[in-house]
Design a protein around this nucleic acid. Structure first.
Length: 466
RNA sequence: GACCCUUUCAUCUAGUGGCCAAGGAUAUUGCGUUUUCAACGCAAAAACAGAGGUUCAAAUCCUCUAAGGGUCGCCA
């Protein structure tokens, strides 16, 4: 059975790049009817925080990725790791190293000065003398001295790294706490991972982990190293580039389906298809099609996708969502008309909420430039005349089409074009010259409010003139 | 510095030796539609990093160069 995982360290919020690798892993599991596990890499006890873990799980909930089974905490598995450390020590596959931190630093500096890759020189590998006093040893694993470490990466192809590049790295700190590359290999093996999908910043950890797999006799999973997401300029994504925290996207008014669709197309594709529902992603995703190269974050495309999902969301769902962005609307028909009138005008939920509020709330001021243009000449008389016609209209007015009939009758009677009434009426109703259709706006706010807004505009015009 | 990886329009990408004088999408520009804006429709502009090979044929295979990225922790 396919088993994948996401293994964050709880040091902050869920990063947008992390979400993409999580998504790739999750999709791989779903596609194959397997399991997707969550493991918390908290072996560095000084850097953990519970809030960070909460934030990660909340982000998962928001986008709708679920993990199977219980969350695995590495900090709760130290006994297990210690058992394996002792086993390797007993078998002579690991050893104690008494080198001090100062000595290590000196060694690294010397190697760098000699234009070499910095690495531990193995000086305690076969040590059987008397250990120096006052140094708590670390445990190092014996990496191969000769040959190459070769593995096949599902994304990058065959990776070959000379053993001389992989040193006898530390598997347990001086205080006995095991280190990352050691526990990752153990957990991935014990948790039954079949595919390990992670950022390609881990590419160089893979040969180290393979050393552990081999020493412990574990079978290797398939590795997939996914290239990074850069900012719009092609540089490393940082907080200065805007939202990197997944939950930030909710605040900005993005829909989870848009965010996931955006992320899945960063580094993966299926022919010319751009829009993927979650179900389609699951059906079509194959990690073998992941791109080798890094991709740049592209806000415009995210916005386009978000607009797409807003436009295509069922009204009741959209209305419910709008509540969390501060907009609540009474009346079923009214809501329908309102959403029809606004949904194509907002690329985010925040913008959509703004559009809705512009219609719902009478304008507190008129855009000076627009007012000047729209309220000139006989504009006041025209909208006044329209208000009268509305007031005296004999059949009840509810639907946009009914308001449209009034408007049509009005331009016909007055023998004017739509443009003549359209501009002043729009500014009277909204305060600006752009926005939703007049018929819809009037249907939403109703006859009384329409007349009242017109009256206010007329007052404004006469004040200006006097 | 060493090692490893990457390179198709501004951006995301299709492309696995002939179907490619390179296709789609976003963004951009123009036109249409509309009482306005948006949405939508149509159109335009826009790329194989460079140089050498291999081949009847190269975006695709090989070599080198260049540019970008990653890694070199008792962090993960």
């Amino acid at each position: 059975m396919t088993v994948t995982r996401f293994a964050p360290s709880p040091t902050g919020y869920l990063h947008i790049g992390g979400l993409r690798t999580a998504l790739f892993s999750w999709l791989t599991a779903q596609h194959n009817g397997g399991k997707f596990l969550l493991r918390i890499e908290d072996t560095d006890l000084s850097r953990n925080s519970d809030e960070a873990l909460d934030a990660i799980i909340r982000a998962f909930d928001w986008v709708g990725l679920h993990y199977d089974g219980e969350v695995v905490y590495q900090s709760q598995r130290f006994e297990l790791y210690t058992k394996y450390i002792n086993q390797l020590l007993d078998e002579g596959k690991a050893y104690k190293c008494y080198m001090s931190k100062e000595e290590l630093t000196a060694l690294r500096e010397e190697q760098m000065a000699n234009k070499q890759r910095a690495r531990y020189d193995g000086r305690y590998r076969d040590f059987d003398g008397t250990p120096p006093e006052g140094v708590a040893p670390v445990i190092r694993i014996k990496a191969p001295l000769e040959g190459d470490i070769i593995f096949s990466d599902g994304v990058k192809g065959e990776i070959c790294i000379a053993s001389s590049e992989v040193d006898d790295f530390v598997i347990a700190r001086a205080d006995g706490v095991p280190t990352y590359n050691f526990v990752v290999a153990i957990d991935d093996a014990l948790m039954g991972l079949t595919q390990v999908i992670r950022g390609d910043d881990h590419l160089y950890n893979t040969p180290k982990q393979i050393v552990v797999y081999k020493a412990l006799g574990f079978a290797l999973p398939e590795f997939y190293h996914v290239a990074m997401i850069n900012n719009e300029e092609g540089k490393k994504l940082s907080k200065r580039d805007g939202a990197t925290d997944v939950m930030e996207y909710q605040k900005l008014g993005f829909l989870p389906e848009a965010l996931l669709n955006f992320l899945v197309r960063l580094g993966w594709s299926h022919g010319d298809q751009e829009i993927f529902s979650l179900a389609e992603m699951i059906e079509l995703f194959d990690p073998k099609n992941i791109n080798k190269s890094a991709s740049n974050y592209n806000m415009d495309k995210l916005l386009w996708l978000n607009a797409h999902y807003i436009k295509n969301m069922p009204h009741d769902k959209l209305a419910k969502l709008l509540v969390s962005y501060g907009v609540e609307v009474e009346g079923h028909d009214r809501l329908e008309i309102l959403l029809d009138a606004t949904r194509e005008r907002g690329k985010t939920m925040v913008e959509l909420a703004e559009q809705v509020n512009i219609i719902l709330n009478a304008p507190s001021e008129y855009n000076p430039k627009n007012a000047k243009k729209a309220f000139k000449g006989d504009a006041s008389d025209i909208i006044q005349g329209f208000a009268v016609m509305l007031k005296e209209w004999e059949t009840p007015l509810h639907l946009p089409s009914e308001y449209h009939a009034v408007l049509e009758k009005f331009v016909e009677t007055k023998e004017i074009g739509f443009g003549k009434i359209g501009q002043p009426l729009r500014v009277a109703l909204l305060g600006s010259m752009t926005g939703s259709g007049l018929d819809e706006i009037m249907a939403i706010v109703g006859v009384d409010e329409t007349i009242s807004r017109i009256a206010k505009a007329i007052e404004f015009i006469s004040n200006k003139e006097s």
